[in-house]
Design a protein around this nucleic acid. Structure first.
Length: 650
RNA sequence: GCCACAAUAGCUCAGUUGGUAGAGUAACGCAUUCGUAACGCGUAGGUCGCGAGUUCAAGUCUCGCUUGUGGCUCCA
C-alpha cells in the first residue's frame, strides 16, 4: 500500500501502481470523467500512469492550466495523426499546446501545401479518429531506439531533437498508427476530445531560425464540449469588433495612404485630438517629476549614428541616408532620439549638482520595419515616442528607475490598463559577445532593475537574452483584443551611449565621471498606445480623451439654429462638440450606435430653446434631466480638469 | 523578407457552370417636421487593387505585381 496526499492535506491509502484516474474514480464518478492530468509530486503526469510510491497528488481538470495543456497537447497529436493519414510522407517538427489551443509544425513534403480549404478534411479525419477512441500509450525508450525509430521513418526533425536529449529521459506516445516523441502528459484516449477546429495555417521557420527550412504551422483548438467551441468562436468575432483598425476607421481617428507609404499613419483631426490630450496628460505628470522638455530635428548627420554605434548595427536595414548638394555629405532620418539628447547633454559642462538631468521629447522616429511586420498602428515605420533620457550618477540609477515605474503606474491606473505584464530582459549569459559594454556595468544595471522591481512589489518575468544590445530593460506588455502581447512602457538602462559620446560630469571630488543614461517611454509610442487604448475601451474613451465629448441633437429643424449657436459657444470654451441635425430623419437605433462612444448627448426642443437649457443624457442612456446650458458646460470642464490633473503625491 | 489567405460603390457585403455590375447603409435634392425603435420620392456614386495572358467574351480562369490580414523571423 502507498500513501497519497491531497491538496487539502488529507491522506488516503491505495494499492501500489494505482493511477490518478483510479484515485479520481474512488472519490467520485463525476471527478473521474473530468480529470485530464495529475500533478504527482510536482510533476504533471498522465492519469493512467501507475504511481509506485507515496506521493502528493493534485487532480487537474479543464479549469486548470495544466489540465487544458495536456488536453490541447493530445489534440496536437490527434491533428498530427490525421495529417499523417491524409498526407503520406509528411514529416513532423514540434506540436505544443499554447495559450489558446495548439499548433503543429509540419513539412508536408516537396510541392505539397496545406491550405485553408483543406481544413474541413483535416477536421473530419480528426473526428473520425476520435470516434475510434484510440488509446494513447506512453513508452520509455532508449536514445538509440528512438533514433532508429525516427530515422527509419525519415523524421529528420525529430531525430535532431532526440540527439539533444539525454538517454534515459526519452518517451514516446502512440495512438493508432501514430507515434510521437513526447514528454507528455496526455489524455488516456482520443475520445475526450469532442469539438475540433483547425484555425489557420502559417509559415514558421524550423527552430525559429530564418536560415532553416520553413515548415507549415497549423493552428487548432479543441474543446470537451461543442458549446465551448461555439462560444470561443463567438468570442473571437466579438474581439474583432474592438480591433483598433476597424474603430480607427469608423471614428475617423487615423488612416493610411498608399501614396504616402505603407506603415506611415496619417492622424485625422479626431485622432490628433485624442493623441494631443494624452501628450498633455503625460507632460503634466513629467512636469511634476521635474522633467524638462526639449525638441530636436527629425534628421541628423550620418556621423551621429556611426558614433552611437547604431549605424553599424542597423544601417543597412534602415531608411537609407539622404544626400545633400555637398559631395559626400549624408543625413539620416532619426531612428531614435537618444543621440540627439546626448548632444544636448554635451552642450554645456555638467556638474553632479545638475544630475539627474531629465530630458523629455515627443520625438518622431522612422524605422524601416519589415513589410510583413507592419500592423495597424501597433507596428509602423514612422512613430512618435514619448521619449525621455535621464542622465544620472550610478548611485541614482535605482532611485530614478523607481520613479519611472511610478509614472508608468500612474498612467496605467488613470487609463484603467489592469492586465499588464512586466518583463525584465537581461542578456544571454551564454552569448556575451552580442552585447556592447563591460561585464561590470551589465551586472550593475541588471541588479538595479531586479532590485527595483522587488522594491515595487512588481511581479516581473525574467527573460534571458531579450536585452537590447546596449543594456538591460524592463518592459510593460499589454494584450490586444485577440490576446497578442504588445510592449508599451519601457525603461532601459544604458551604460553604453554615455561611453560612446564621452559624456561627463564633474563630481564633488572635482574629478570627471561618466553619467548613466536611462531611456524611458511610458506609453512606448503614441501610435501603439492609442491602438491598445482603442482596443481596451472599444472606442468608448473617458470624457477627457473622447474626440467628441458632447453631441447635440435638435429634435426638429426649427431648433437647428439654436443648436448651432450653442455648439459654437461650447467649442469656444474648449468642449469638443458635434451636432446631429438630421432631426427625426434618422432612427433611434442608428443614433444609439453612433452615440455609444460619445459621453454626453444634449437634446434640444422647444422648452430648452425658451429657457436656454439642455436635456442631458449620459452615454448608455441615463437621463440626467434638464439644466442651464452654462451649468452643463461648467460641470463638464470641471470634470475633465479633475481627470487631467493627477497629483503625484496621492 | 518568408508561408497562407484576401481585395467589387465612402462603409458592410452579394455576384452561381465565364455572357453588358447589384443590395443595404452613408452622401446629395425635394417633400415632411416637437423628445428619436430606420418617413416617402428621387439623384449621384464602380477601369470589379494594378498589369499581362487564355477566350468570340473575364469581376469570375492563369501568371506577375501592389496593398491588406493571420502567423514566422525581426523589433535600436
Amino acid at each position: 500500500m502507498i500513501k497519497i496526499k491531497f491538496p487539502d492535506d488529507s491522506v488516503r491509502e491505495y494499492e501500489q501502481g494505482i493511477t490518478a484516474l483510479q484515485i479520481a474514480e474512488s472519490i467520485s464518478q463525476r471527478l473521474a470523467q473530468e480529470v485530464l492530468a495529475a500533478s504527482v509530486n510536482g510533476e504533471t503526469w498522465d492519469i493512467n500512469r501507475p504511481i509506485q510510491e507515496n506521493s502528493t497528488i493534485q487532480l487537474l481538470k479543464w479549469e486548470d492550466d495544466e489540465g487544458k495543456h495536456a488536453y490541447w497537447h493530445s489534440s496536437a497529436h490527434l491533428m498530427a495523426e490525421a495529417l499523417q493519414e491524409l498526407y503520406p510522407g509528411i514529416k513532423f517538427g514540434i506540436g505544443p499546446a499554447i495559450e489558446n489551443g495548439f499548433y503543429y509544425d509540419v513539412d508536408p513534403g516537396e510541392g505539397v501545401t496545406i491550405k485553408e480549404s483543406d481544413f474541413p478534411a483535416i477536421e473530419n479525419k480528426m473526428m473520425e479518429l476520435i470516434a475510434k477512441k484510440e488509446e494513447i500509450i506512453r513508452q520509455d525508450i532508449s536514445k538509440s531506439e528512438a533514433i532508429d525509430m525516427f530515422s527509419n521513418r525519415n523524421e529528420n526533425y525529430k531525430v535532431e531533437l532526440i540527439n539533444e536529449l539525454e538517454d534515459g529521459t526519452i518517451t514516446t506516445y502512440s495512438q493508432g498508427n501514430f507515434t510521437d516523441l513526447c514528454r507528455g502528459p496526455h489524455l488516456p484516449n482520443t475520445s475526450y476530445i469532442k469539438a475540433v477546429k483547425v484555425l489557420s495555417a502559417a509559415g514558421a521557420y524550423w527552430r525559429g531560425d530564418e536560415h532553416r527550412p520553413q515548415l507549415t504551422r497549423l493552428y487548432g483548438i479543441t474543446f470537451p464540449k461543442k458549446k465551448l467551441l461555439t462560444e470561443y468562436l463567438e468570442l473571437l468575432e466579438e474581439a474583432k469588433k474592438r480591433d483598433h483598425r476597424k474603430i480607427g476607421k469608423e471614428l475617423e481617428l487615423f488612416a493610411f495612404s498608399q501614396n504616402v507609404g505603407v506603415g506611415l499613419p496619417l492622424w485625422l483631426p479626431k485622432g490628433t485630438q485624442l493623441r494631443l490630450k494624452l501628450e498633455e496628460f503625460l507632460k503634466h505628470i513629467q512636469q511634476q517629476f521635474e522633467y524638462q522638455q526639449v525638441m530636436t530635428p527629425h534628421i541628423a548627420n550620418k556621423q551621429l549614428y556611426i558614433t552611437s554605434g547604431h549605424y553599424a548595427k542597423y544601417g543597412k536595414d534602415s531608411f537609407q541616408p539622404m544626400k545633400t548638394p555637398v559631395e559626400g555629405e549624408e543625413f539620416m532620418l532619426k531612428p531614435m532620439n537618444c543621440p540627439h539628447h546626448c548632444e544636448i547633454y554635451k552642450v554645456i559642462p555638467r556638474s553632479y549638482k545638475d544630475l539627474p538631468l531629465r530630458l523629455a521629447e515627443f520625438g518622431t522616429v522612422y524605422r524601416y520595419e519589415q513589410s510583413g511586420e507592419l500592423h495597424g498602428l501597433t507596428r509602423v515605420r514612422g512613430f512618435t515616442q514619448d521619449d525621455a533620457h535621464i542622465f544620472c550618477t550610478p548611485d541614482q540609477v535605482k532611485g530614478e528607475f523607481l520613479k519611472v515605474v511610478d509614472i508608468i503606474f500612474i498612467i496605467f491606473k488613470a487609463l484603467d490598463f489592469k492586465n499588464f505584464e512586466a518583463q525584465i530582459s537581461l542578456r544571454d549569459p551564454e552569448n556575451k559577445e552580442k552585447y556592447i559594454g563591460s561585464d561590470e556595468n551589465w551586472n550593475k544595471a541588471e541588479s538595479a532593475i531586479v532590485e527595483a522591481c522587488k522594491e515595487k512589489g512588481l511581479p516581473a518575468k525574467v527573460e534571458l537574452g531579450e536585452a537590447a544590445f546596449y543594456g538591460p530593460k524592463l518592459d510593460f506588455m499589454v494584450k490586444d483584443a485577440i490576446g497578442r502581447r504588445w510592449q508599451l512602457g519601457t525603461i532601459q538602462v544604458d551604460y553604453n551611449l554615455p561611453e560612446r559620446f564621452e559624456l561627463e560630469y564633474t563630481g564633488a571630488d572635482n574629478q570627471k565621471h561618466r553619467p548613466v543614461m536611462i531611456h524611458r517611454a511610458p506609453f512606448g509610442s503614441m501610435e501603439r498606445f492609442v491602438a491598445l487604448l482603442i482596443e481596451h475601451t472599444a472606442g468608448k474613451f473617458p470624457i477627457w480623451l473622447a474626440p467628441t465629448q458632447v453631441i447635440i441633437l435638435p429634435v426638429s429643424e426649427k431648433f437647428n439654429d439654436f443648436a448651432n449657436e450653442l455648439s459654437k459657444t461650447y467649442i469656444r470654451q474648449g468642449i469638443r462638440v458635434e451636432i446631429d441635425d438630421r432631426n427625426e430623419k434618422v432612427g433611434r437605433k442608428i443614433r444609439d450606435n453612433e452615440l455609444k462612444r460619445i459621453p454626453y448627448m444634449l437634446i434640444i426642443g422647444e422648452k430648452e430653446v425658451e429657457n436656454n437649457e439642455v436635456s442631458v443624457r449620459k452615454q448608455g442612456g441615463e437621463d440626467l434631466g434638464t439644466m442651464k446650458s452654462t451649468i452643463f458646460a461648467e460641470n463638464l470642464l470641471k470634470e475633465v480638469d479633475e481627470m487631467m490633473t493627477i497629483d503625484i503625491n496621492k
